[in-house]
Amino acid sequence: MHQSFLQYRGKRYLWWALSLCFVAVLAYAWHQPVSPPNGGTWLGYTLGTIGALLILWLTALGVRKRSYQSAVGTVQGWVSAHVYLGLALIVVATLHTGFQFGWNVHTLAYVLMMTVIVSGLFGVVMYLRFPERLSANRSSQTREQMLQEIADLDQRALRIAANLPAEFAEAIASNRDRTRIGGTVLDILRGRDRSQVSLAGDDGVLQVVPNPAQEHMLEWLGRQLSRSTDAERTRRIDELVNLMASRRSLLRRVIEDARIAGWLQVWLYVHVPITFALLGSLIAHVVSVFLYW
């Protein structure tokens, strides 16, 4: 009833793709041209035409995906075919080259095409690998809800800190204000926590220190806790420790959420622009072949 895009309709398009590869390899093996195999033989032209049409059709997924009214198959079906036929392109295009590579616009088109295919393959791996983790990490909360919960925790912590010496409120407020999630693409993909906090040292001097995973914040609170002699004060600090510990796990989940979402998306930033570069070089390749060969 429901299945992944790779399993779609009993892997129908996998069989299509395999058949295409099989026929291409068979023809290539059977074909004995006068010159060494290349794009200029009748088989070379045939494979080239098939490959170019495939590339155009593969690109059309972007259009189909955005044609929300369209009833031409389902997007899932298109994706399934896109993946399998895109992989088949490796065989078709490579045979089309006849293994003749060089420093020219033709090989450029080939390299770009392979980059697109490899990035797509990477995307498939991401799609298989990450969704379950994404869901488990979210545990029924959206990212906005997690951020809201962090904000609520900060509010509660500030209320508690209001009954403690001023440096507590300052610490909690700076912890809130200096929380840094995200950053560069690399930061997101690595799940870096660039948060800082400004804490009062034993001498009362404020110092800004890095605070990944609320480490210093918790350490500082722990130090205050160990020094507290007043029962009520101890109870309040303890509450703050609990809140900050919850904050730590929430923050971790937000960062992890962004990290996974990042991996699920980042390949598209290679896949799509290079597709357009590929289209350009493909036109150059075809035009130059017909005009100058």
């Binding site: 009833m1 429901h2 299945q3 992944s4 895009f5 779609y8 995906k65 929300y68 009214q69 009833a71 389902t74 997007v75 899932q76 298109w78 994706v79 799609y127 969704p131």
Partner: peptide, 26 residues
């Protein structure tokens, strides 16, 4: 819309599905 719910038709990975009571058990 022809072709049924757009949300399901637009899902690229097949994650979205609509279930009727008859199909719940399955």
């Amino acid at each position: 819309q022809s072709g049924g719910p757009a949300c399901v038709r637009a899902c690229p990975t097949g994650a979205a599905l609509r279930v009727s009571p008859e199909a719940f058990v399955e």
